[in-house]
Design a protein around this nucleic acid. Sequence first.
DNA 1: CGGAAAGGCGGGAGCGATCCCGAAAACGCG
DNA 2: CGCGTTTTCGGGATCGCTCCCGCCTTTCCG
Lengths: 341, 341
Amino acid sequence: MTSSSGRSSSRPTLEQVAALAGVSRGTASRVLSGASNVSENAVEAVRRAAAELHYRPNLAARSLVTGRTGLVGLLVNEPAHKLWTDPFFGELARGAHDRLTEDGVALVLSLATEESERDKLIELATTRLDGVLIVRGGGDEKLVHALVDAGVTAVTAGRPADSLLERVGWVDSENEAGARAAVEHLVERGRRRIGLITGPDDMNVVVDRRSGWREALRAAGLDASAELVEPGAFTIESGAQAMATLLERVPDLDAVFAQNDLMALGAIRQLRVAGKAVPGDVAVVGFDDLMAESSSPTLTTMAQDVQGFGAAMASLLLEQLGGAAPRHEVIPVSLVARESS
Amino acid sequence: MTSSSGRSSSRPTLEQVAALAGVSRGTASRVLSGASNVSENAVEAVRRAAAELHYRPNLAARSLVTGRTGLVGLLVNEPAHKLWTDPFFGELARGAHDRLTEDGVALVLSLATEESERDKLIELATTRLDGVLIVRGGGDEKLVHALVDAGVTAVTAGRPADSLLERVGWVDSENEAGARAAVEHLVERGRRRIGLITGPDDMNVVVDRRSGWREALRAAGLDASAELVEPGAFTIESGAQAMATLLERVPDLDAVFAQNDLMALGAIRQLRVAGKAVPGDVAVVGFDDLMAESSSPTLTTMAQDVQGFGAAMASLLLEQLGGAAPRHEVIPVSLVARESS
DNA sequence: CGGAAAGGCGGGAGCGATCCCGAAAACGCG
DNA sequence: CGCGTTTTCGGGATCGCTCCCGCCTTTCCG
């Protein structure tokens, strides 16, 4: 239907575009890759020819010479269930995806929950990916180390172990400050017995948010003993569970800070079961601001731009791929007070 | 550290492997791609050489000549929130991922929620993907049509619109039979007023499960009128919402069949709020069997192998990529009776 | 034992881009 | 107007692999 232009049944090549534009392959390449030293005429002619032929560059050919694949892995080393149930991951992936797409880079889903899958994953990373976005390195950071040792460019979500601080890029939230702000808010509202629902200890987020909680309590002269802390697993269920335990251990609890919204939701649910009013008897604050509308009472939480978090990871990786040294970035969080506190 | 073998600072090429093995590049290629007409000796030598050099093929070079990229898109045309909150997607992705990995194919996350992103997506698909796994084509199947018209090999989750039946591969559950079985089970338990919580009407799953429900009721001589049907959106919230509406409209309801587990969970939650006992007053049956442990009472549901569903999609796609005509496959479902009915 | 068929193997010819060198054209200035 | 500089451009070389053609060995059978 598209009139003219040869009998090209398959995709046109750069050579054909150049021919149609009346220039050489080299010039056509320059135009399409946005080089500066090309004449107006040539640019115009090549653009037109490319459009007419519906030219699409063959990425494999490009890769072959540039050595870059234009592919980045999204490595989520987390049980499948957990991953696809936490909106945090979704938002993060969205942000990263969009940022990468801007630069013509695609996101490859890289799953490796089990130890046995790691070799395949490292092979994938070294063989066809330019770099990797690591969402959760797993308790031990063995996998991340293995990747970095294999020369893979990486950016992690959250501050990594000290040994990796300078070797990968990373993005983190204002965890400590955020947690402090959350607790200060509760203190201002007159709460005195403020519990904490954490996550797995091997994550720096957990450690940082806990120390923010502790510090704020100390500063206010309140109890910050261990009996007020109960670990969860960043899921609704675990939040409910932890809340139950906490209530039993500390009957006079009048507030709880959950390290993410999912657990805060679980806590609220459990409080209702226990016949406690929220925020009447116990105030609840979460973290992330991803579930504002899906709880009643609506959830007070520490808001952060999760898509921005993902985009920042992507930017950092792109930057490193361009030759820059690994950097890190911190995403600000801010209190959003709603009904639950 | 790895002793011997040249000063190859960068990745070894097939040529180098061949040299070390004392054969030609051609032979080395034959060995590594598993061709049959190679002597024992050669196979052995090449294998050893490849291992010693830690040889990894350059996929870009391979793509350039084979015309295949070894990349398949996972197209989820669904608001991010929904996607990352429904365990169904996670299981499906897992299954597809694992099956594809077996064949050395990687999964590229392809998001295109908004109309404006479609062109980019089609470009991605035609330019760097071998095929696409479509998880949800969006209400209108415009995007799928556009892809197929552009010559993209595709497999959809769920039976597509009639106009696409022969043009894409697809995998579907035994929706109608499953729904029928669910309702028959409720009837056997003595239920007489059986409601239905559906999903968006533009999905064939929804239509099929509804007709299964209707048919079973008719066969039992029970009411199957529209007042017993209320649409949801496959989320917990929407399930609760629909349940509330249903209870109000049909006060004497004694059972409800929700078209997925998430909505069943929402329904149970809402029933509790309304002071109804489950299953005492109202029995509940879901679909998918993905949330068995996270409800109380535990959920009776139509179980299906969701990872197998994803794997089947991958297999079909691989098959089509191999030149076969599009086929479809149906995943069996079976009743798992638990406490909620 | 000789000739045909089959099995193994080597290496040239691409695949379609980018890079880069050197030639040609355009420009600037005394 | 001539010559040095800067721009622009052409096209060879190259990336690392697979495909394929044709040669050399073996094997088999009459």
